[in-house]
Nucleic acid binder design. Structure first.
Length: 813
DNA sequence: AGCACGCCGACT
DNA sequence: GTCGGCGTGCTC
């Protein structure tokens, strides 16, 4: 019997295994990688074929097999490389294979499976049908055929909320039957084409002499490429639909449909500058050429100071890979998609690009994927999800700003794009190119060990000097009597820059500095009822009152007039978010036009782009925002940068705090003066002597790395260890804590005497309680990650629903 | 995740 | 004696 091993697309750990189905004769063409419909526990679901093969009755061991119902697509969806990668990643991240495989699809499921109800003819005399409501439903379905719940509700509005109960009951007594209908969710759009189906001979021209419009159309079609024109093009050429109709009825032309692949970035125009590579750039390209030509895996770390022209190296490499006929994936941090990398590539490869990111709609994404599949585009630029685009033959994976934290997905499956990229590069025998001005310590360390080839570029193009950085000790400012958020040197910088008609960027590291609301009488801070974190004040817009919002639970509530605890009317807003800062800026330089960019103002698809474009067009003088202002754009007229609290993250309980602080300073400072004039930067800090701050000010990566690596080695943190974070969740606080403690005991027992493993916890998570569930964290530090992965699997942790496993977590708590 | 099956309290 | 609550366990 022909059978298939099928993984159902349900992301639940307990069914994370392959099920065997029989393959009916009419589906014998199915192979590994096809998506199929299968019956599963009384319903119909999407499944992925992992293998097909003959199985004898004996092998089946008495299991009664169900049969695959149909194929989803007209071709196999997953390539062998995709399945291989998904398997490896599922293994590495201890998640289910389906969870990993569905990353390779445009949506989480390729299907929308809807439930239809069908009247069972034999039961038309059933007792239940004596009740009018039941009879109405039955008769409606008898008349209309199988219908969905919403259609029934629309046809019989008088049933209202009784309907679900009626349907359930009738189904239970088998008077109605459930039927599952699946639609593909590819939202394909088609366009009409008119095709000439004959040779335009002199004879035909003669025949149509008196039908001027049709002859005109014939001539147009004959001239068109492939004798084909779109309806839209014909309309533009003033050909009426009636003319087309006459011609097709005469049999000389035909109307066909073609799937339209929308290119969301098709209209983006970019200017190509002729550039000659610098010595450093060509040296970097030359170093990578052997691996490219040899079709080998090799990893490179391109460490180039801001402005040294890494993007040009990427483009050179991409050009070479495209000449070899292989495909290129270019990863950029989510935030940088509007920035210079996309535009630069667009200039060199105007039609060969697709842009992928999470804000594309499902249909846009489908079209982008299909363009890659059909060979219509060979360069995929996008955020981390671009890694999962179905490219057949990848020759190069570029990861720009490889240290960026947004490459780690913060929901399950919690993969890191660098890990995925490395594995894909291995599978495809491709070149992996990590680029950064300030590499992550993990990559830098690996490069020093020789796992990556280190390429360095130290010169800025045009030999522009690095910006002039001034550090302001905020404690000193306070002693001098300045209680503002803004120090005097920063105020001066703002005034001077505005006076020179130049622009500046002000960055506020909001972390740990949210505007919370506190009662000045009793000290009560207003907190979220669900998670206990302080609520954040949001200003009212356009006359609407302000509100308090929780940034974790997505709840908002009105601002109370009096303290909920003591009833005092003295409630005050503390801290300083971007909104507060905006107000203060207005007081200092009333003439300055300020635009704000933070999570609140960038909800929509092109919000980033629009804000940056407006700023670039000099409609504003000051760009004020959170960390996102520090990345991925290059605005000529920006000559000054202010960093409000460079080190507010330094005191967080996180081993990466110093790294974050250093990178923030170097990156933000790098935004100033990239073109004509030396930039000026003011950094406000409470820790002016910390090495992260001093090295940041000097733009001294090596110095920082030296000290930080020493710290990491002493404390056994990455890159000297790998981390695994386990999050135990339970409605019962004690149960959550006990579960965590139990694992720690088992861990200690299993690895007793092994110095390469450490375990910390249980400690309450940052959000110690979320939606009524208590959360405890166990943190494992290990020099031998694979043995910890095996241990966790032995413990069955990957199957538990109450434990979330995070390999290489970004935050510790 | 869904959906069956099953065991116990409330009601005709 | 029947209905419906949701706890438990399985899905080729």
């Amino acid at each position: 019997m022909l059978t298939a091993s099928v993984f159902v697309n349900i992301p639940v750990k307990s069914i994370a295994k392959a099920y065997t189905y029989s393959v009916p004769a009419e589906l014998s063409f199915l192979e590994t990688g096809w998506r199929v419909f299968v019956p599963f526990g009384g319903r119909k679901v999407e499944g992925f074929v992992l293998a097909v093969g003959e199985k004898s009755e004996a092998e089946l061991d008495g299991i009664k097999l169900k049969s695959i119902q149909a194929a989803v697509d007209e071709e196999s969806w997953f390539t062998p490389a995709m399945i291989k990668a998904a398997r490896w990643l599922a293994d590495f991240y201890l998640c289910s294979l389906a969870e990993m495989m569905r990353l390779f699809m445009p949506g989480k499921s390729g299907l929308k499976i809807s439930v239809l109800y069908e009247a069972v003819a034999e039961e038309r005399e059933h007792l239940l049908l004596q009740m009018p409501m039941y009879r109405a439903v039955y008769q409606y379905l008898q008349a209309e055929g199988p219908q969905g719940r919403s259609a029934i509700a629309r046809a019989l509005p008088e049933l209202k909320e009784e309907l679900p109960a009626i349907l359930d009951k009738l189904t239970q007594y088998k008077v109605l039957r459930k039927d599952y209908a699946a639609q593909k969710r590819d939202n394909a759009r088609y366009e009409k084409l008119v095709v000439l189906t004959c040779q335009l001979t002199g004879q035909i021209r003669d025949d149509y002499k008196r039908k001027k419009a049709q002859l005109h159309l014939l001539e147009l079609l004959a001239k068109a490429p492939a004798q084909t024109m779109t309806m839209a093009a014909l309309k533009a050429a003033k050909v009426t639909p009636a003319t087309v109709k006459n011609l097709t009825e005469a049999g000389l032309a035909e109307i066909r449909q073609r799937r339209v692949l929308r290119d969301s970035y098709g209209d983006v125009q970019a200017e190509r500058r002729q550039v000659e590579l610098t010595d450093e750039q060509s040296a970097a390209v030359r170093a990578m050429e052997p691996a490219l030509a040899g079709h080998n895996y090799q990893g490179f770390l391109l460490k180039g100071v801001t402005g040294s022209g890494k993007t040009q190296v990427y483009i050179e490499m991409a050009e070479r890979v495209r000449k070899l006929g292989r495909q290129v994936i270019v990863l950029v941090p989510e935030i940088a998609l509007t920035g210079q990398v996309v535009m630069a590539f667009k200039a060199y490869f105007p039609a060969d690009i697709v842009v992928m990111h999470s804000r594309l709609s499902l249909s846009e994404r489908n079209d982008a994927i299909l363009r890659v599949r059909r060979g219509g585009a060979g360069i995929i630029i996008g955020a981390r999800s671009a890694l999962f685009t179905p490219a057949e033959d990848i020759g190069l994976i570029i990861m720009d700003e490889e240290q960026d934290m947004s490459y780690k997905q913060d929901e399950s499956p919690r993969y890191h794009a660098r890990v995925v990229a490395e594995e894909l590069a291995h599978i495809h025998q491709a070149v992996l190119l990590l680029g950064s001005a300030t590499p992550s310590l993990e990559s830098y360390y690996r490069a020093r060990k020789g796992e990556f080839t280190l390429l360095t570029m130290t010169k800025r193009i045009g030999d522009l000097p690095l910006p002039l950085v001034k550090c302001v000790d905020m404690r000193q400012e306070l002693r001098l009597g300045n209680r503002h958020i803004m120090s005097r040197p920063l105020q001066q910088l703002i005034e001077q820059t505005i006076a020179k008609k130049q622009q500046l960027i002000i960055m506020l590291n909001r972390r740990g500095f949210s505007t919370f609301v506190m009662c000045r009488s009793c000290g009560e801070v207003i907190k979220c009822k669900l998670c206990g974190l302080p609520l954040v004040y949001h200003q009212g817009q356009g006359g609407r009152p302000g509100k308090l919002a929780c940034h974790h639970c997505d709840v908002a509530e009105p601002i109370p007039d009096t303290c909920p605890k003591c009833g005092s009317r003295y409630i005050k807003y503390f801290g300083s978010g971007t909104e507060k800062l905006e107000q203060e800026l207005h007081q200092i330089v009333p003439s300055a036009r300020v635009i704000r960019m933070d999570r609140d103002t960038t909800n929509t698809k092109f919000a980033h782009q629009e804000i940056l474009a407006k700023f670039r067009r000099r409609e504003y003088d000051i760009l004020l925002g959170t960390q996102m202002v520090a990345k991925g754009h290059d605005i000529p007229n920006v000559t000054a940068v202010g960093i409000i609290s460079a080190d507010s993250s330094l005191n967080l309980p996180d081993f990466r705090a110093a790294e974050r602080c250093f990178m923030l300073i170097t990156q933000t400072a790098g935004r100033a003066g990239r073109h004509t004039e030396q930039g000026r930067v003011v950094i406000q800090t409470y820790n002016p002597s910390h090495y992260a701050v001093t090295c940041g000010i000097d733009q001294d990566y090596e110095g920082f790395a030296e000290q930080e690596l020493m710290m990491r080695r002493q404390l056994f943190y990455p890159p000297y260890s790998r981390l695994v974070k386990l999050l135990y969740q339970n409605e019962d606080e004690q149960a959550a804590r006990d579960g965590a403690a139990q694992l720690i005991a088992a861990f200690a027992q299993h690895f007793r005497g092994d110095k390469r493993q450490q375990v910390i916890g249980p400690s309450p998570a940052v959000i110690a309680r979320l939606r009524g569930v208590y959360r405890f964290v166990v943190l494992i530090k290990t020099a031998d990650l694979s043995s910890v992965q095996s241990f966790l699997r032995e413990q069955g942790l990957h199957l538990r629903t109450d434990v979330a496993i995070d390999i290489d977590p970004i935050t510790m708590l």
